[in-house]
Design a protein around this nucleic acid. Structure first.
Lengths: 193, 193
DNA sequence: TAAAAACGTTGATCCGGATCAACAAATTAA
DNA sequence: TTAATTTGTTGATCCGGATCAACGTTTTTA
Protein backbone atom coordinates (compact mmCIF):
# COMPACT_ATOMS: atom_id res chain seq x y z
CA UNK A 1 0.00 0.00 0.00
CA UNK A 2 1.64 3.16 -1.21
CA UNK A 3 1.47 5.84 1.44
CA UNK A 4 3.64 8.28 -0.42
CA UNK A 5 0.70 10.27 -1.68
CA UNK A 6 -0.32 10.82 1.93
CA UNK A 7 3.08 12.20 2.87
CA UNK A 8 3.00 14.49 -0.12
CA UNK A 9 -0.41 15.72 0.92
CA UNK A 10 0.76 16.55 4.44
CA UNK A 11 3.88 18.26 3.14
CA UNK A 12 1.81 20.50 0.89
CA UNK A 13 0.65 22.14 4.12
CA UNK A 14 3.47 21.78 6.67
CA UNK A 15 6.97 20.43 7.15
CA UNK A 16 6.93 16.80 8.19
CA UNK A 17 10.23 15.32 9.46
CA UNK A 18 11.02 12.04 7.72
CA UNK A 19 11.44 10.41 11.10
CA UNK A 20 7.91 11.31 12.22
CA UNK A 21 5.99 9.95 9.28
CA UNK A 22 6.45 6.26 10.03
CA UNK A 23 5.37 6.80 13.62
CA UNK A 24 2.40 8.85 12.52
CA UNK A 25 1.26 6.18 10.08
CA UNK A 26 0.75 3.78 12.98
CA UNK A 27 -2.20 5.94 14.03
CA UNK A 28 -4.04 5.08 10.81
CA UNK A 29 -5.57 1.81 9.67
CA UNK A 30 -5.61 0.68 6.03
CA UNK A 31 -9.04 -0.14 4.64
CA UNK A 32 -10.41 -1.08 1.25
CA UNK A 33 -13.76 -0.40 -0.36
CA UNK A 34 -15.44 -2.10 -3.26
CA UNK A 35 -17.17 -0.04 -5.90
CA UNK A 36 -20.57 0.98 -4.58
CA UNK A 37 -19.72 0.41 -0.91
CA UNK A 38 -20.79 3.05 1.55
CA UNK A 39 -18.09 4.17 3.95
CA UNK A 40 -20.85 5.62 6.11
CA UNK A 41 -24.45 6.63 5.82
CA UNK A 42 -26.60 9.49 7.09
CA UNK A 43 -27.62 8.88 10.68
CA UNK A 44 -24.36 7.24 11.62
CA UNK A 45 -21.42 8.59 13.57
CA UNK A 46 -18.46 7.71 11.37
CA UNK A 47 -15.79 5.66 13.10
CA UNK A 48 -12.97 6.67 10.77
CA UNK A 49 -12.10 9.72 8.80
CA UNK A 50 -10.80 8.39 5.48
CA UNK A 51 -7.77 9.58 3.57
CA UNK A 52 -7.97 8.30 -0.01
CA UNK A 53 -4.80 6.60 -1.27
CA UNK A 54 -6.48 5.37 -4.41
CA UNK A 55 -9.96 5.67 -5.84
CA UNK A 56 -12.84 8.10 -5.88
CA UNK A 57 -15.87 8.70 -3.68
CA UNK A 58 -18.92 10.90 -3.64
CA UNK A 59 -20.60 12.63 -0.73
CA UNK A 60 -24.31 13.14 -1.06
CA UNK A 61 -27.41 13.88 0.94
CA UNK A 62 -31.02 12.79 0.54
CA UNK A 63 -33.43 15.73 0.33
CA UNK A 64 -36.99 15.62 1.69
CA UNK A 65 -38.23 14.29 -1.63
CA UNK A 66 -35.76 11.43 -1.41
CA UNK A 67 -33.58 12.68 -4.25
CA UNK A 68 -29.84 12.26 -4.02
CA UNK A 69 -27.95 15.55 -4.08
CA UNK A 70 -24.23 15.25 -4.59
CA UNK A 71 -22.25 17.62 -2.41
CA UNK A 72 -18.79 16.80 -3.66
CA UNK A 73 -16.42 14.26 -5.15
CA UNK A 74 -13.23 13.17 -3.44
CA UNK A 75 -10.32 11.68 -5.34
CA UNK A 76 -7.08 10.13 -4.11
CA UNK A 77 -4.79 12.44 -2.19
CA UNK A 78 -7.61 13.94 -0.11
CA UNK A 79 -9.62 13.36 3.02
CA UNK A 80 -13.30 12.65 2.56
CA UNK A 81 -14.51 12.73 6.14
CA UNK A 82 -17.12 14.32 8.29
CA UNK A 83 -14.66 14.87 11.09
CA UNK A 84 -16.92 17.39 12.77
CA UNK A 85 -19.49 14.69 13.27
CA UNK A 86 -16.91 12.37 14.78
CA UNK A 87 -15.75 15.02 17.20
CA UNK A 88 -19.18 16.14 18.30
CA UNK A 89 -20.64 12.63 18.38
CA UNK A 90 -23.61 13.90 16.43
CA UNK A 91 -24.82 11.71 13.57
CA UNK A 92 -23.85 13.00 10.14
CA UNK A 93 -26.47 13.54 7.47
CA UNK A 94 -24.31 12.74 4.51
CA UNK A 95 -23.63 9.51 2.65
CA UNK A 96 -20.10 8.63 1.57
CA UNK A 97 -19.92 6.09 -1.23
CA UNK A 98 -17.07 4.61 -3.25
CA UNK A 99 -17.46 5.14 -7.00
CA UNK A 100 -14.48 2.87 -7.64
CA UNK A 101 -12.53 0.31 -5.67
CA UNK A 102 -10.75 2.39 -3.03
CA UNK A 103 -7.71 2.17 -0.82
CA UNK A 104 -8.18 4.17 2.35
CA UNK A 105 -6.24 5.17 5.43
CA UNK A 106 -8.71 5.58 8.28
CA UNK A 107 -8.15 7.52 11.48
CA UNK A 108 -10.34 7.64 14.58
CA UNK A 109 -11.01 10.86 16.40
CA UNK A 110 -9.03 9.55 19.38
CA UNK A 111 -6.01 9.07 17.18
CA UNK A 112 -6.46 12.52 15.69
CA UNK A 113 -6.16 13.94 19.19
CA UNK A 114 -3.26 11.66 20.02
CA UNK A 115 -1.51 12.73 16.83
CA UNK A 116 -1.97 16.39 17.65
CA UNK A 117 -0.43 15.86 21.08
CA UNK A 118 2.59 14.04 19.70
CA UNK A 119 3.26 15.93 16.49
CA UNK A 120 3.20 19.72 16.53
CA UNK A 121 3.23 19.82 12.73
CA UNK A 122 -0.01 17.85 12.71
CA UNK A 123 -1.64 20.56 14.78
CA UNK A 124 -0.42 23.22 12.40
CA UNK A 125 -1.70 21.14 9.51
CA UNK A 126 -5.21 21.23 10.96
CA UNK A 127 -5.03 24.90 11.69
CA UNK A 128 -4.12 25.64 8.13
CA UNK A 129 -6.31 23.14 6.37
CA UNK A 130 -9.63 23.37 8.15
CA UNK A 131 -10.60 26.98 7.63
CA UNK A 132 -9.26 26.92 4.09
CA UNK A 133 -11.38 23.93 3.22
CA UNK A 134 -14.44 25.41 4.82
CA UNK A 135 -14.05 28.67 2.94
CA UNK A 136 -13.43 26.97 -0.38
CA UNK A 137 -16.42 24.70 0.04
CA UNK A 138 -18.73 27.62 0.68
CA UNK A 139 -17.35 29.54 -2.23
CA UNK A 140 -17.79 26.57 -4.52
CA UNK A 141 -21.35 26.07 -3.28
CA UNK A 142 -21.97 29.68 -4.16
CA UNK A 143 -20.62 29.23 -7.69
CA UNK A 144 -22.92 26.28 -8.21
CA UNK A 145 -25.82 28.57 -7.43
CA UNK A 146 -24.78 31.52 -9.55
CA UNK A 147 -22.77 30.39 -12.56
CA UNK A 148 -24.38 28.94 -15.70
CA UNK A 149 -23.69 25.21 -16.13
CA UNK A 150 -21.47 25.68 -19.16
CA UNK A 151 -19.08 27.81 -17.12
CA UNK A 152 -19.13 25.25 -14.32
CA UNK A 153 -18.42 22.42 -16.70
CA UNK A 154 -15.52 24.23 -18.34
CA UNK A 155 -14.15 24.90 -14.90
CA UNK A 156 -14.25 21.21 -14.09
CA UNK A 157 -12.43 20.44 -17.32
CA UNK A 158 -9.65 22.78 -16.25
CA UNK A 159 -9.44 22.08 -12.55
CA UNK A 160 -10.40 18.41 -12.31
CA UNK A 161 -10.09 16.82 -15.75
CA UNK A 162 -9.54 13.38 -14.22
CA UNK A 163 -12.93 13.58 -12.55
CA UNK A 164 -14.74 13.88 -15.88
CA UNK A 165 -12.98 10.81 -17.19
CA UNK A 166 -13.61 8.49 -14.29
CA UNK A 167 -17.11 9.40 -13.14
CA UNK A 168 -20.43 8.67 -14.86
CA UNK A 169 -21.74 11.82 -16.41
CA UNK A 170 -25.08 11.82 -14.64
CA UNK A 171 -23.24 12.24 -11.34
CA UNK A 172 -21.54 15.31 -12.76
CA UNK A 173 -24.92 16.59 -13.89
CA UNK A 174 -26.41 16.07 -10.45
CA UNK A 175 -23.47 17.83 -8.85
CA UNK A 176 -23.82 20.81 -11.19
CA UNK A 177 -27.57 20.95 -10.65
CA UNK A 178 -28.64 20.12 -14.21
CA UNK A 179 -29.88 17.12 -16.20
CA UNK A 180 -27.56 14.73 -17.92
CA UNK A 181 -29.00 15.78 -21.30
CA UNK A 182 -27.80 19.28 -20.62
CA UNK A 183 -24.25 18.04 -20.04
CA UNK A 184 -24.42 16.21 -23.36
CA UNK A 185 -25.38 19.40 -25.11
CA UNK A 186 -22.76 21.47 -23.37
CA UNK A 187 -20.13 19.01 -24.49
CA UNK A 188 -21.13 19.13 -28.16
CA UNK A 189 -21.25 22.93 -27.94
CA UNK A 190 -17.74 23.02 -26.49
CA UNK A 191 -16.38 20.70 -29.16
CA UNK A 192 -17.80 22.82 -31.98
CA UNK A 193 -16.15 26.01 -30.73
CA UNK B 1 -26.54 47.06 26.57
CA UNK B 2 -28.74 44.01 27.00
CA UNK B 3 -26.62 40.88 27.09
CA UNK B 4 -29.49 38.60 28.00
CA UNK B 5 -29.93 37.42 24.43
CA UNK B 6 -26.32 36.26 24.50
CA UNK B 7 -26.85 34.21 27.66
CA UNK B 8 -29.94 32.65 26.14
CA UNK B 9 -27.97 31.78 23.03
CA UNK B 10 -25.26 30.02 25.03
CA UNK B 11 -27.82 28.18 27.13
CA UNK B 12 -29.51 26.83 24.02
CA UNK B 13 -26.38 24.72 23.60
CA UNK B 14 -24.95 24.09 27.07
CA UNK B 15 -25.52 24.75 30.76
CA UNK B 16 -23.99 28.02 31.84
CA UNK B 17 -23.76 28.66 35.60
CA UNK B 18 -25.13 32.07 36.52
CA UNK B 19 -21.90 32.83 38.32
CA UNK B 20 -19.77 32.26 35.22
CA UNK B 21 -21.61 34.52 32.84
CA UNK B 22 -20.51 37.84 34.30
CA UNK B 23 -16.91 36.69 34.31
CA UNK B 24 -17.19 35.41 30.78
CA UNK B 25 -18.63 38.70 29.54
CA UNK B 26 -15.41 40.44 30.51
CA UNK B 27 -13.74 38.60 27.64
CA UNK B 28 -15.92 40.42 25.12
CA UNK B 29 -15.96 44.04 24.08
CA UNK B 30 -19.12 45.94 23.16
CA UNK B 31 -19.08 47.56 19.73
CA UNK B 32 -21.58 49.42 17.61
CA UNK B 33 -21.98 49.64 13.86
CA UNK B 34 -23.82 52.17 11.78
CA UNK B 35 -25.96 51.03 8.89
CA UNK B 36 -23.71 50.27 5.94
CA UNK B 37 -20.53 49.92 8.01
CA UNK B 38 -18.28 46.99 7.23
CA UNK B 39 -17.19 44.96 10.21
CA UNK B 40 -14.47 43.54 8.04
CA UNK B 41 -13.61 43.17 4.37
CA UNK B 42 -12.13 40.48 2.15
CA UNK B 43 -8.37 40.44 2.46
CA UNK B 44 -8.38 41.30 6.15
CA UNK B 45 -7.83 39.13 9.18
CA UNK B 46 -10.77 40.00 11.41
CA UNK B 47 -9.77 41.19 14.87
CA UNK B 48 -13.07 40.29 16.51
CA UNK B 49 -15.67 37.64 16.02
CA UNK B 50 -19.00 39.43 16.48
CA UNK B 51 -22.01 38.23 18.42
CA UNK B 52 -25.03 40.28 17.40
CA UNK B 53 -27.04 41.70 20.30
CA UNK B 54 -29.16 43.84 18.04
CA UNK B 55 -29.31 44.39 14.31
CA UNK B 56 -28.71 42.52 11.12
CA UNK B 57 -25.71 41.93 8.86
CA UNK B 58 -24.95 40.29 5.57
CA UNK B 59 -21.94 38.24 4.54
CA UNK B 60 -21.02 38.41 0.88
CA UNK B 61 -18.18 37.73 -1.49
CA UNK B 62 -17.13 39.44 -4.71
CA UNK B 63 -16.94 37.04 -7.65
CA UNK B 64 -14.39 37.39 -10.48
CA UNK B 65 -16.81 39.62 -12.39
CA UNK B 66 -17.05 41.92 -9.40
CA UNK B 67 -20.62 41.00 -8.56
CA UNK B 68 -21.68 40.77 -4.94
CA UNK B 69 -22.90 37.32 -3.94
CA UNK B 70 -24.63 37.15 -0.59
CA UNK B 71 -23.68 34.07 1.39
CA UNK B 72 -25.93 34.59 4.38
CA UNK B 73 -27.74 36.99 6.67
CA UNK B 74 -27.10 37.17 10.39
CA UNK B 75 -29.64 38.56 12.82
CA UNK B 76 -29.39 39.28 16.54
CA UNK B 77 -28.80 36.27 18.73
CA UNK B 78 -26.12 34.81 16.45
CA UNK B 79 -22.43 35.00 15.70
CA UNK B 80 -21.46 36.36 12.31
CA UNK B 81 -17.76 35.71 12.32
CA UNK B 82 -15.08 34.10 10.22
CA UNK B 83 -13.45 32.58 13.24
CA UNK B 84 -11.48 30.13 11.13
CA UNK B 85 -9.72 33.01 9.48
CA UNK B 86 -8.87 34.52 12.88
CA UNK B 87 -7.46 31.27 14.13
CA UNK B 88 -5.40 30.46 11.04
CA UNK B 89 -4.29 34.07 10.50
CA UNK B 90 -5.23 33.72 6.86
CA UNK B 91 -7.13 36.64 5.34
CA UNK B 92 -10.82 36.01 4.87
CA UNK B 93 -12.46 36.49 1.49
CA UNK B 94 -15.83 37.57 2.74
CA UNK B 95 -17.27 40.98 3.51
CA UNK B 96 -19.37 41.51 6.62
CA UNK B 97 -21.63 44.54 6.48
CA UNK B 98 -24.27 45.97 8.79
CA UNK B 99 -27.68 46.35 7.13
CA UNK B 100 -28.97 48.19 10.20
CA UNK B 101 -27.43 49.93 13.18
CA UNK B 102 -25.94 47.07 15.20
CA UNK B 103 -24.92 46.31 18.75
CA UNK B 104 -22.15 43.78 18.86
CA UNK B 105 -20.13 41.84 21.39
CA UNK B 106 -16.71 41.18 19.90
CA UNK B 107 -14.24 38.56 21.02
CA UNK B 108 -10.64 38.11 19.94
CA UNK B 109 -9.21 34.70 19.17
CA UNK B 110 -6.95 35.03 22.21
CA UNK B 111 -9.97 35.49 24.44
CA UNK B 112 -11.73 32.57 22.80
CA UNK B 113 -8.82 30.38 23.86
CA UNK B 114 -8.72 31.96 27.29
CA UNK B 115 -12.43 31.34 27.69
CA UNK B 116 -12.09 27.71 26.72
CA UNK B 117 -9.38 27.23 29.34
CA UNK B 118 -11.44 28.83 32.10
CA UNK B 119 -14.91 27.59 31.27
CA UNK B 120 -15.45 23.95 30.38
CA UNK B 121 -18.99 24.67 29.20
CA UNK B 122 -17.55 27.07 26.63
CA UNK B 123 -15.49 24.26 25.17
CA UNK B 124 -18.52 22.02 24.97
CA UNK B 125 -20.42 24.87 23.34
CA UNK B 126 -17.87 25.02 20.54
CA UNK B 127 -17.82 21.28 20.10
CA UNK B 128 -21.56 21.21 19.67
CA UNK B 129 -22.02 24.35 17.65
CA UNK B 130 -19.25 24.25 15.09
CA UNK B 131 -19.97 21.02 13.23
CA UNK B 132 -23.69 21.65 13.35
CA UNK B 133 -23.27 25.07 11.79
CA UNK B 134 -20.96 23.74 9.15
CA UNK B 135 -23.33 20.96 8.17
CA UNK B 136 -26.34 23.23 8.09
CA UNK B 137 -24.55 25.79 5.96
CA UNK B 138 -23.62 23.19 3.37
CA UNK B 139 -27.09 21.78 3.31
CA UNK B 140 -28.58 25.22 2.86
CA UNK B 141 -26.11 25.97 0.07
CA UNK B 142 -27.28 22.80 -1.59
CA UNK B 143 -30.93 23.81 -1.34
CA UNK B 144 -30.15 27.13 -2.98
CA UNK B 145 -28.78 25.22 -5.91
CA UNK B 146 -31.56 22.67 -6.28
CA UNK B 147 -34.87 24.11 -5.11
CA UNK B 148 -36.96 26.45 -7.27
CA UNK B 149 -37.03 30.01 -5.93
CA UNK B 150 -40.68 29.89 -4.94
CA UNK B 151 -39.96 27.02 -2.56
CA UNK B 152 -36.96 28.85 -1.15
CA UNK B 153 -38.96 31.99 -0.62
CA UNK B 154 -41.77 30.17 1.14
CA UNK B 155 -39.18 28.54 3.34
CA UNK B 156 -37.82 31.92 4.32
CA UNK B 157 -41.34 33.09 5.17
CA UNK B 158 -41.69 30.17 7.55
CA UNK B 159 -38.24 29.98 9.05
CA UNK B 160 -37.11 33.62 9.06
CA UNK B 161 -40.14 35.85 8.62
CA UNK B 162 -38.39 38.74 10.38
CA UNK B 163 -35.70 38.72 7.71
CA UNK B 164 -38.18 39.44 4.94
CA UNK B 165 -39.53 42.41 6.84
CA UNK B 166 -36.27 44.11 7.69
CA UNK B 167 -34.13 43.53 4.60
CA UNK B 168 -34.44 45.15 1.17
CA UNK B 169 -35.91 42.66 -1.25
CA UNK B 170 -33.09 42.80 -3.76
CA UNK B 171 -30.77 41.38 -1.12
CA UNK B 172 -33.13 38.47 -0.67
CA UNK B 173 -33.20 38.01 -4.43
CA UNK B 174 -29.41 37.99 -4.62
CA UNK B 175 -29.23 35.47 -1.79
CA UNK B 176 -31.74 33.18 -3.52
CA UNK B 177 -29.96 33.55 -6.84
CA UNK B 178 -32.74 35.31 -8.75
CA UNK B 179 -33.66 38.83 -9.83
CA UNK B 180 -35.69 41.14 -7.69
CA UNK B 181 -38.46 41.11 -10.33
CA UNK B 182 -38.81 37.40 -9.80
CA UNK B 183 -39.33 37.90 -6.06
CA UNK B 184 -42.04 40.44 -6.84
CA UNK B 185 -43.82 37.89 -9.02
CA UNK B 186 -43.46 35.11 -6.50
CA UNK B 187 -45.04 37.31 -3.86
CA UNK B 188 -48.06 38.16 -5.98
CA UNK B 189 -48.44 34.47 -6.86
CA UNK B 190 -48.35 33.51 -3.18
CA UNK B 191 -50.92 36.13 -2.25
CA UNK B 192 -53.37 34.91 -4.91
CA UNK B 193 -53.29 31.31 -3.68
C1' DT C 1 -39.62 69.48 3.29
C1' DA C 2 -38.05 69.17 -1.19
C1' DA C 3 -35.07 66.84 -4.25
C1' DA C 4 -32.51 62.81 -5.09
C1' DA C 5 -31.60 58.21 -4.58
C1' DA C 6 -32.91 53.65 -3.61
C1' DC C 7 -36.35 50.29 -3.94
C1' DG C 8 -40.31 47.65 -5.87
C1' DT C 9 -43.88 46.49 -9.45
C1' DT C 10 -45.72 45.30 -13.89
C1' DG C 11 -45.59 44.18 -18.79
C1' DA C 12 -43.43 42.25 -23.12
C1' DT C 13 -40.13 39.41 -25.07
C1' DC C 14 -36.51 36.03 -25.20
C1' DC C 15 -33.75 32.12 -24.06
C1' DG C 16 -31.69 28.25 -21.51
C1' DG C 17 -32.59 24.25 -19.49
C1' DA C 18 -36.40 20.78 -18.16
C1' DT C 19 -39.08 17.29 -19.83
C1' DC C 20 -40.42 13.37 -22.61
C1' DA C 21 -39.37 10.04 -25.92
C1' DA C 22 -36.68 7.14 -28.78
C1' DC C 23 -32.56 5.24 -29.63
C1' DA C 24 -27.34 4.14 -29.34
C1' DA C 25 -23.40 2.73 -26.78
C1' DA C 26 -21.01 0.82 -23.11
C1' DT C 27 -20.81 -1.98 -18.80
C1' DT C 28 -22.10 -5.57 -15.99
C1' DA C 29 -23.79 -9.93 -14.88
C1' DA C 30 -25.55 -14.54 -15.82
C1' DT D 1 -20.79 -14.25 -25.02
C1' DT D 2 -25.20 -13.04 -24.80
C1' DA D 3 -28.70 -10.76 -22.29
C1' DA D 4 -29.73 -7.15 -19.07
C1' DT D 5 -28.73 -2.94 -17.13
C1' DT D 6 -26.64 1.32 -16.97
C1' DT D 7 -25.16 5.23 -19.31
C1' DG D 8 -25.17 8.77 -22.97
C1' DT D 9 -27.13 11.19 -27.23
C1' DT D 10 -30.41 13.66 -30.05
C1' DG D 11 -34.78 15.86 -31.22
C1' DA D 12 -39.26 18.38 -30.16
C1' DT D 13 -41.76 21.02 -27.07
C1' DC D 14 -42.60 23.75 -23.04
C1' DC D 15 -41.92 26.80 -19.24
C1' DG D 16 -39.64 29.60 -15.67
C1' DG D 17 -36.85 33.15 -14.96
C1' DA D 18 -33.75 36.79 -17.28
C1' DT D 19 -33.79 40.98 -19.48
C1' DC D 20 -35.25 45.59 -20.71
C1' DA D 21 -38.18 49.35 -20.01
C1' DA D 22 -41.40 52.33 -17.80
C1' DC D 23 -43.43 53.77 -13.85
C1' DG D 24 -44.75 54.11 -8.82
C1' DT D 25 -43.32 54.16 -4.04
C1' DT D 26 -40.41 54.66 -0.19
C1' DT D 27 -36.32 56.21 2.08
C1' DT D 28 -32.35 59.31 2.46
C1' DT D 29 -30.11 63.36 2.61
C1' DA D 30 -29.30 68.10 2.15
Amino acid sequence: MDTNIFLRHLRSYVDVPDADFGEFLKLLVPLTLKKGDHFYRAGEIPRYSPFILQGCLRQYILDESGREQIILFNEEGNWAGQIGSMRSRLPTNVYLQALEPCQILGITIEHVDLGMERFPWYQRYFLKKYPTDHARLLEQANRLKTEPPEVLYRELMETRPSLLLRIPQHYIANYLGVRTETISRIKTRLVRS
